[in-house]
């Protein structure tokens, strides 16, 4: 199974995401943001960081990178899974691949801390009920209208919710999926909880859920 970590100017979680994917048994490559041939990958990850310095708005410039055109086609084709983590999630909402938008954290500044998450998408995360993962963001306040929340709830597209809302997100939502369950976005950083020396190893559960999902739901040839 092959994975790619897309690197934009300003991306800063690429290395640990690469290591985490490798530790989860995926053959992994870095992709510079002007690369467009992504069809060989089963999982494409937009990692965390400050793509284009977060100038204008987080993700607002990165969504126009050449790689994003291919990403849109990749999603339509059902070829594999697209996962956006933190800034990657912000890019996906800017690109309209996931619903909602982000505002500045309610407290007005950056927060880096370990949070408890309640897993909601039980089909994706079989047998996992709670996760302990790090958040690290200034603009993690996920905003989505009530009608969409209802839809997300009905279609079980909310991946997880914060046990204690750290940033003001609507309904404490910390991660969502698109309607086909091939695009996932999450604010917490699973890659920071994957190594034996990390405070938690729950990030591995997220990546193994992605692997299972790829096997069951994409056009990947086994």
């Amino acid at each position: 199974m092959r994975a790619a970590v897309v690197v934009f100017p300003g991306t800063n979680c690429d290395r640990e995401t690469f290591e985490a994917l490798k530790a989860s048994g995926l053959e992994t490559d870095y992709l510079w943001h002007n690369w467009t041939s992504i069809d060989v990958y089963d999982l494409v990850v937009l990692p965390g960081g400050f793509s284009y310095g977060d100038y204008l708005r987080p993700g607002a410039i990165a969504r126009f990178s050449p790689v994003m055109n291919s990403v849109e086609k990749y999603v339509e084709s059902g070829r594999g899974i697209l996962l956006g983590i933190c800034n990657g999630f912000q890019i996906l909402t800017e690109a309209g691949l996931l619903p909602g938008a982000f505002l500045r954290n309610e407290c007005g500044h950056f927060i880096c801390k370990m949070v408890d998450l309640e897993v909601k998408a039980h089909e994706v995360f079989a047998n996992v009920k709670r996760l302990k993962l790090y958040i690290a963001h200034s603009d993690g306040n996920y905003v989505v209208d009530e009608k969409t929340v209802e839809l997300l709830e009905d279609e079980k597209r909310i991946l997880f919710k914060y046990a204690e809302n750290p940033n003001g997100s609507s309904h404490s939502i910390a991660g969502v999926a698109n309607e086909n369950f091939c695009v996932f976005g999450m604010m917490p950083h699973p890659e920071r909880s994957t190594m034996p020396y990390h405070e938690s190893n729950d990030g591995l559960k997220v990546f193994s859920a992605m692997r299972r999902w790829i096997n069951a739901h994409t056009s990947r040839k086994a």
Partner: peptide
């Protein structure tokens, strides 16, 4: 103070701010 600093980016942090010294892998 330290919650406003990203102390885990890079994935090398083993023990940070609450420890006497920070430990990095």
């Amino acid at each position: 103070v330290y919650e406003r600093y990203d102390h885990t980016v890079g994935g090398r942090t083993i023990k940070a701010p609450k420890s006497d010294a920070a430990i990095i892998h």
